[in-house]
């Protein structure tokens, strides 16, 4: 199983510069569907699913490796190596933003820029630091994931659906949309919500754009400001968009913020 099959890597677009899109917790590469067309004309686009999500190879899931976000960051570097990518513009949503920073900290030469969509280095409040959640709340989330097995597994069931209103979606993609293996999702949630990556922010000097939504229950505004303050080469843009997924709820605003930065 090659790296490209393992991570269900897709390449499209024209251009000499590469943009690599990494989806966040709870979904897969389909998340970027409203953003990618705006860049496909001028950039080479790399899309992939984290192991355990979407159409990645579930057999490649190694509970030890993926117990840490670093395991996922390593996959990003492996994809880059397999495709011999250079000067990557990395776009990472949510937890994947941190993976991008980890990858860039390990191989600074590989990345031209980082675009962090709704990032958070740590979700748990700690002294002056506002992460958005108390430790008790995160424990409650993890417990509810443990118990909510049926709710998650339903999303695994193959869904046949009429798709007349979005004919451009291929049936295969639609049926697997945001497919999540419940056991893997639980461990991914643990790695996502219990990791404190605040200390690595200062070690990354790659030019970085932070896209922060104005109202996001998962990564509050204070988090965006914290990352900006910690990363010496960063720019913070507060979007009017609300929620945690501006690339879905406000694609136009997200696209123009990225274009302006580039």
């Amino acid at each position: 199983m090659s790296v490209l099959e393992r991570n269900n890597v897709h390449q499209l677009g024209n251009g000499s510069t590469t943009m690599m899109f990494a989806h966040g917790f709870g979904c897969d590469q389909n998340m970027w569907r409203l953003i990618v067309p705006a860049f496909a004309e001028n950039y080479k686009i790399i899309l992939f699913d984290h192991v355990g999500a979407g159409l990645s190879d579930l057999n490649a899931y190694d509970p030890v490796k993926y117990n840490e976000l670093d395991g996922y960051a390593h996959d990003i570097l492996e994809i880059a190596e397999a495709l011999q990518l250079k000067e990557i513009i990395f776009v990472g949503h949510s937890v994947s933003a941190m993976m991008g920073i980890m990858a860039a900290a390990q191989s600074p030469g590989l990345f031209k820029a980082l675009i962090l969509v709704s990032p958070s280095p740590s979700y748990i409040n700690d002294g002056d630091y506002i992460g958005g959640f108390s430790r008790i709340e995160i424990d409650e989330l993890l417990a509810s994931l443990d118990q909510n097995h049926l709710g998650w597994s339903m999303t695994m069931a193959p869904m046949i659906m009429a798709n007349a209103d979005r004919a451009e979606l291929s049936e295969e993609l639609t049926n697997s949309f945001c497919r999540t293996d419940p056991t893997i999702a639980r461990q991914f949630a643990r790695a996502t919500f219990l990791t404190d990556s605040r200390s690595i922010l200062k070690t990354c000097h790659t030019p970085t754009l932070i896209l922060q939504c104005s109202e996001d229950i998962i990564a509050p505004v204070e988090v965006g400001a914290f990352i900006h303050q910690q990363m010496d080469n960063s720019k913070l843009t507060i979007l009017e968009a609300t929620g945690h997924c501006p690339h879905l709820s406000a694609p136009a605003e997200t696209i123009s913020a990225i274009k302006e930065f580039l």
């Binding site: 998340m31 569907r33 709340e137 995160i138 509810s144 929620g243 945690h244």
Partner: peptide, 17 residues
């Protein structure tokens, strides 16, 4: 809280796409 995060990260994207 668990459902809130699930909603933001999974259900809201499902509704959108």
């Amino acid at each position: 809280v668990g459902s809130r995060i699930f909603y933001e990260t999974h259900l809201a994207p499902m509704l959108r796409l």
